Simulated assay, not measured.
Amino acid sequence: MNLVAKTFHGLEEVLAKELEAIGARNIKILKRAVSFDSNKETLYKSNLYLRTALRILQPLTTFTARTETELYDKVKAYNWAPYMRNDQTLAIDAVVFSRFFTHSKYVALRVKDGICDQFRDSTGIRPSVNLHRPTLMINVHVAEDKFTLSLDSSGEPLNRRGYRTKDHPAPINEALAAGMVMLSGWDGKSPFMDPMCGSGTIVMEAAMIAAKMAPNLKREEFGFQRWNNYDPELWAQIVKEAKEQIVQPEARITGSDIDLRSIDVARQSALDFGLKQFINFSKMPFVEAIPIGKNGVLIMNPPYDERLKNSEIAKLYMEIGSQFKHKFTGWDAWVISSNSEALKLVGLKPAEKHTLYNGALECRFQKFSMYEGSKKINRSNGPRRNMPKDV
């Protein structure tokens, strides 16, 4: 079967490598998605193991329609009997980018009517809708007049690992956080820090990577477990193998933040999820953070002056650059921010730049390599030492 894994813009290649690692075939990078060929085992593994995936979809049919009648007729004409019975339930999730159809809820309603009316005409009984725990979650994607109808094998979005138990003013998506850790090239063994960790999402994802823990190992249920062809024995074996792969991390992983409430939330989440022993959390302002070893990786998600208001945003970003230069020699420091002007105030030349999206905000994810010695050579005096690279 052909499947599509949805992800964030900028993480498609990371996701493709993850898919290759679990045995997927015919991998193709799409826009905010990756398609691949799969058997049932790989379908199950993709939901369990993929850190940067948001949903795993199984496309069923594509067609064109420009009116609600065309849409209804083509949905009703498709044979839904192999996927559900009339005593089961469904829910429709529609994403619409079209001048012909402007309301996603109305599209979802017409798709639901087409499916239910087919069962009514053939059996006399219509399936019912269950928005919370349906037998089938059907994803509808509309691009102008092109419709793609897919089965959603994930149910709840895959970024909902289960460790985020309390609200935080500006959390970062778990799949995005995992993608940032993977983009950084961190080896899972060297020191890892987030000195503005908030509720701990980035360090939680780093800890799971270091422990080789499947990100969705503690999820209670996936959509495919309600499908008629679900194989519980195969799933149990895959889960068993995933548990056996977990190791004690070699890396020192720390998260700190100036806000005590955020640290309390992070500690409780790590404790509830079984990761507390892998992460050291502390209440600490960024200016007091010091490296926990040599040649580590630091990733931080500072305020953007977007959702979180900070009247001293310029001062904050200049301080970030100063701290990197004076304390983190030998480290790779990564910063994500939607504020491009503030990023310039870091005062360091980025070694890498990636465009990512944190929600609706277009962000730059930039790497600052704090070399122990300058890469530039002074031909008369030899290499210059102990000079972090900056401009």
Rank of each mutant, 00 (worst) to 15 (best):
Leu343Trp: 12
Ala314Met: 02
Ser369Lys: 12
Pro191Tyr: 13
Thr355Tyr: 04
Tyr371Val: 02
Asn39Trp: 01
Val297Lys: 10
Lys45Arg: 13
Pro232Cys: 01
Glu144Cys: 03
Gln366Arg: 09
Ser190Thr: 15
Gly293Lys: 13
Trp235Asp: 11
Thr69Tyr: 13
Asp145Lys: 11
Ala108Ser: 11
Cys197Arg: 06
Gln237Trp: 03
Thr123Pro: 04
Glu233Phe: 13
Ile92Trp: 09
Lys349Leu: 13
Pro171Ser: 14
Ala24Arg: 01
Ala333Gln: 01
Leu136Arg: 14
Phe324Val: 10
Trp186Val: 12
Ala333Asn: 13
Met180Gln: 01
Arg25Thr: 10
Leu149Gln: 09
Phe100Asn: 12
Asn339Ile: 03
Gln277Phe: 01
Lys294Ser: 15
Pro134Met: 02
Leu183Arg: 10
Gln118Phe: 15
Val181Arg: 04
Ser262Ile: 02
Gly124Ile: 13
Val96Pro: 01
Glu220Leu: 10
Arg164Cys: 02
Val297Asp: 02
Asn130Gln: 10
Met1Ala: 11
Ala333Ser: 15
Ala333Leu: 14
Ser262Gly: 04
Lys367Thr: 06
Ser104His: 05
Thr67Lys: 11
Arg219Met: 05
Thr42Arg: 09
Met300Ile: 12
Leu15Ile: 02
Gly321Gln: 06
Pro127His: 13
Ala251Gln: 03
Ile258Val: 13
Gly10His: 07
Val4Leu: 12
Pro350Cys: 05
Asp37Ser: 15
Arg66Met: 12
Phe278Pro: 04
Ala177Asn: 04
Leu30Gly: 05
Tyr106Ile: 09
Lys353His: 11
Gln58Arg: 15
Ile92Lys: 09
Phe273Ala: 15
Ala211Lys: 09
Leu176Glu: 08
Val346Trp: 03
Leu30Arg: 08
Gly293Met: 11
Ser150Met: 07
Asn2Cys: 02
Trp331Val: 02
Lys146Trp: 06
Ser98Phe: 05
Glu174Phe: 00
Val346Tyr: 03
Ala342Asp: 05
Lys146Cys: 11
Ser374Asn: 10
Ile238His: 08
Arg384Cys: 03
Leu271Pro: 00
